[in-house]
Deep mutational scan, measured.
Amino acid sequence: GAPPLPPYSAGGREVTMKKGDILTLLNSTNKDWWKVEVNDRQGFVPAAYVKKLDSGTGKELVLALYDYQEK
């Protein structure tokens, strides 16, 4: 199953993602919540729920390892 959710501390809205989604990583300075862009929406997802990909394009991409439903 998915890892436990860290307390929400990102101070911005969250976004929903599905397992297998490829998201653009915008900011990973917060260790628990990373800012991503998905379907032209920006928001935060739990860092433990995604994995960085080596895209080779200069853009940082992450793979959704679990479904996440915004609150």
Rank of each mutant, 00 (worst) to 15 (best):
G1D: 14
G1H: 13
G1A: 13
G1S: 12
A2W: 06
A2F: 09
P3V: 06
P3S: 05
P3M: 06
P4V: 08
P4G: 07
L5W: 06
L5M: 10
L5Y: 07
L5I: 13
L5H: 07
L5D: 06
P6F: 02
P6I: 02
P6D: 03
P6S: 02
P6G: 03
P7M: 08
P7T: 05
P7V: 06
P7F: 06
Y8A: 09
Y8V: 12
Y8F: 12
Y8I: 11
Y8G: 12
Y8R: 10
Y8H: 09
S9M: 14
S9H: 14
S9I: 10
S9K: 13
S9P: 15
S9C: 11
S9E: 09
S9W: 10
S9T: 09
A10W: 07
A10H: 15
A10V: 10
G11A: 14
G11L: 07
G11H: 14
G11F: 04
G11N: 13
G12W: 10
G12H: 09
G12V: 07
G12D: 07
G12S: 07
R13A: 15
R13N: 14
R13K: 14
R13S: 11
E14G: 13
E14Y: 15
E14C: 11
E14L: 11
E14R: 14
E14Q: 15
E14M: 15
V15W: 05
V15R: 02
V15L: 15
V15T: 06
V15C: 09
V15D: 01
V15H: 05
T16A: 11
T16H: 11
T16L: 06
T16N: 11
T16R: 08
T16Y: 12
M17C: 05
M17G: 00
M17N: 00
K18V: 07
K18N: 07
K18S: 08
K18H: 10
K18A: 07
K18D: 03
K18T: 08
K18L: 07
K19G: 04
K19V: 08
K19W: 03
G20D: 05
G20Y: 03
G20M: 03
G20L: 02
G20P: 00
G20T: 01
G20S: 02
G20C: 04
D21K: 03
D21R: 03
D21G: 03
D21C: 05
D21M: 15
I22S: 02
I22Y: 05
I22V: 11
I22D: 00
I22N: 02
L23A: 08
L23E: 00
L23D: 00
L23F: 08
L23P: 01
T24P: 13
T24Q: 08
T24K: 11
T24E: 09
T24Y: 10
T24V: 15
L25S: 01
L25T: 01
L25M: 03
L25H: 01
L25C: 05
L25Y: 02
L26C: 05
L26R: 04
L26S: 02
L26M: 06
L26T: 04
L26K: 04
L26V: 11
N27S: 12
N27M: 07
N27E: 14
N27L: 07
N27Y: 05
N27P: 02
S28K: 07
S28V: 06
T29Q: 13
T29W: 08
T29G: 09
T29P: 03
T29C: 09
N30G: 10
N30I: 04
N30R: 08
N30L: 07
N30A: 07
K31C: 07
K31Q: 13
K31I: 09
K31R: 12
K31S: 12
D32A: 07
D32T: 06
D32V: 08
D32Y: 15
D32N: 07
D32H: 14
W33Q: 01
W33E: 00
W33R: 01
W33A: 01
W34P: 00
W34N: 01
W34F: 06
W34K: 00
W34C: 02
W34Y: 06
K35T: 08
K35I: 14
K35C: 12
V36P: 00
V36L: 03
V36C: 05
E37N: 05
E37L: 08
E37C: 09
V38Q: 14
V38D: 09
V38G: 09
V38L: 15
N39D: 15
N39E: 15
N39K: 12
N39S: 12
D40F: 11
D40C: 12
D40R: 10
D40S: 14
R41C: 08
R41Y: 09
R41D: 11
R41L: 13
R41I: 15
R41P: 00
Q42C: 08
Q42G: 05
Q42T: 11
G43P: 01
G43F: 07
G43R: 03
G43I: 06
G43W: 06
G43L: 05
F44N: 03
V45R: 00
V45M: 01
V45N: 00
P46N: 01
P46L: 03
P46Y: 02
A47W: 02
A47D: 01
A47E: 02
A48T: 10
A48M: 10
A48F: 04
Y49H: 03
Y49N: 02
Y49W: 08
Y49Q: 02
Y49I: 03
Y49T: 03
Y49P: 00
V50G: 01
V50S: 01
V50R: 00
V50H: 00
V50W: 00
K51V: 13
K51L: 14
K51S: 09
K51C: 11
K51N: 05
K52D: 04
K52P: 09
K52F: 08
L53H: 05
L53K: 03
L53P: 00
L53D: 02
D54C: 10
D54V: 14
D54K: 10
D54Q: 12
D54N: 12
D54F: 12
D54W: 14
S55L: 12
S55E: 10
S55F: 11
S55A: 12
G56A: 13
G56N: 13
G56T: 14
G56V: 13
T57R: 09
T57G: 15
G58R: 08
G58C: 07
G58Y: 09
G58H: 11
G58E: 11
G58Q: 08
K59Y: 11
K59N: 10
K59T: 12
K59Q: 14
K59E: 12
K59L: 12
K59D: 10
E60W: 10
E60R: 13
E60N: 15
E60K: 10
E60T: 14
E60P: 14
E60V: 15
E60Q: 15
L61T: 10
L61W: 11
L61F: 12
L61C: 06
V62N: 01
V62C: 09
V62M: 04
L63H: 04
L63N: 02
L63V: 15
L63Q: 10
A64T: 03
A64F: 01
A64D: 00
A64M: 03
A64L: 03
L65A: 03
L65Y: 03
L65I: 10
L65T: 03
L65C: 05
Y66R: 05
Y66N: 04
Y66I: 04
Y66S: 04
Y66A: 04
D67C: 04
D67N: 06
D67K: 03
D67T: 06
Y68A: 01
Y68M: 03
Q69G: 14
Q69M: 09
Q69N: 15
Q69I: 13
E70A: 15
E70K: 13
E70T: 13
E70V: 12
E70L: 10
E70Y: 08
E70N: 10
E70W: 09
E70R: 09
K71D: 14
K71R: 15
K71E: 13
K71Y: 15
K71T: 15
